[in-house]
Amino acid sequence: MTALRWPVAALVAAVALVGAYVALGGRDYAPAAVPNPCQPRDWHKVADFSDLENEVALSALDGAACRLHVPQPALALAFTSESRLRAFARRHDLSTPEIAAATRAGLERAISDGRRSGAINELEGIVLSAAADRVPVDQLIGLVRGVLGG
């Protein structure tokens, strides 16, 4: 029994310290989790074109990320340069048509979010949806890359 005195005391000290660190949030001290892109996005108040551009881009990114099952920031970073987009496609085993389809779906989602928030009216929504359907794939990706600074 005496032989166990040392290990038991050590175990108590070790468990107390580890337990205290877990209780103080040690397990959660990691980069913040990114929001689920498939959750509906509530638009902020749109006062001018810049606000509209902002909300459309974020909703479109959410929609595309949701379709591709990737985090929204990863897709945003991919769109910042052509080489990053290629690397992103390789990493997630995606073809250009798949990315284009997701980008179209993202734009549809943005238009739908905009309509729901009242920032885009019915007529604007129909025109924008038609445009999103007809823009060629490479131009569509180029447009999104342009908006995101690529």
Partner: peptide, 23 residues
């Protein structure tokens, strides 16, 4: 032996706590 075992447990506990620093 008891002291050696205790030392091993303390080292393991310290390392586990370093993995869980709250900030």
């Amino acid at each position: 032996r008891g002291a050696a075992a205790a030392g091993v447990i303390l080292i393991a506990g310290g390392l586990a706590a370093l993995a869980l620093v709250p900030s």
